[in-house]
Amino acid sequence: MKTVAHTAIEPGILYFGTPVVLISTTNEDETVNLAPMSSAFWLGWRAVLGLGARSKTTQNLLRTREGVLNLPSEALAPQVDRLAMTTGSDPVPAGKQERGYFHVADKFARAGLTPVPSSTVGPPRVAECPVAMEVVVEAVHPVGDDGGVLAFEVRVQRVWVHEEIRLAGTEDHIDPDRWRPLVMSFQKFYGLGPQVHPSTLARIPERLYRGPDIDRARRVPGAPEVGQQV
């Protein structure tokens, strides 16, 4: 294999490619905010979300300590893009005004998406998203020195999926060949291509990764039985 030299650069952002998440949260007046983001990763039944400290989603998560992480498929890129440059904050924060953001009260209507009730948290799920995870906030950590970004550690209480992405013949497995997440890389939308190489890690049964948060989720009041469709 030919050796290629590296070049030192200083890009303004380091978004090398992560799934898009639509976070639904509850506003002070009991209306719903829906916001796209892509600074998220998962460990077991927990996720870490990187959010601007002054965003409406951040304010709602800090106040209510709950939300829903809706994962759109690549087919929902147009709907997600309708939420670009919008904010649930009124007035619009100065930093977002500078970037051209504007206030939208009903984000579901603007995106053309459908809210459906959650089972363990107040904010609704997005019906069109193939994956929706009801979460509660476990911890909040400042990121950087200027206080402009917060990292939320959230715990998943319930996972909902469309039947079309569930692995045939299993109760609780996702078929990675049928799940096509919407991915953002350097502010542009992409999908996934086919598997490029067999994975040695895929030989490990998923059940060996199951942690105590799954048993904890089963004890949440109102949590539906696995396999129940709502």
Rank of each mutant, 00 (worst) to 15 (best):
T3E: 13
E10Y: 15
P11S: 14
P11T: 12
P11E: 15
L14C: 11
L14G: 06
L14T: 11
L14S: 14
Y15C: 04
F16Y: 15
T18A: 12
T18L: 11
P19W: 06
P19T: 11
V20M: 05
V20W: 00
L22I: 10
S24Q: 02
T25G: 05
D29N: 10
N33H: 07
L34N: 00
P36M: 06
S39I: 02
F41W: 08
G44A: 09
G44M: 08
G44K: 05
G50Y: 02
L51I: 12
G52W: 01
R63L: 15
R63H: 14
R63F: 09
R65T: 09
V68L: 02
N70K: 03
L76Y: 00
Q79T: 02
R82M: 08
M85H: 07
M85C: 08
T87C: 01
T87S: 04
G88T: 01
Q97E: 12
Q97S: 08
R99A: 13
Y101N: 03
V104C: 06
A105I: 03
A109I: 07
A109E: 15
R110L: 15
A111Y: 05
G112L: 10
V116M: 13
T120L: 05
P124H: 05
V131K: 01
A132I: 03
A132H: 00
A132G: 06
M133W: 03
E134A: 03
V135K: 00
V137D: 04
E138D: 15
P142I: 13
G147I: 10
F152H: 02
E153Q: 12
V156S: 01
Q157P: 02
V161L: 04
V161F: 03
H162E: 11
G169Y: 04
G169P: 06
T170W: 06
E171W: 09
H173P: 01
H173S: 03
P176T: 12
P176G: 06
W179L: 09
P181K: 01
F186M: 14
L192K: 07
P194L: 06
P194C: 08
Q195L: 12
V196W: 08
V196H: 09
H197W: 15
R203I: 10
R203N: 12
I204S: 06
I204T: 14
L208D: 10
R210Q: 14
R210K: 09
R210V: 12
D213Y: 08
R216S: 13
R216C: 12
R219K: 14
G222C: 07
G222F: 06
A223L: 04
V226K: 07
G227I: 09
V230R: 13
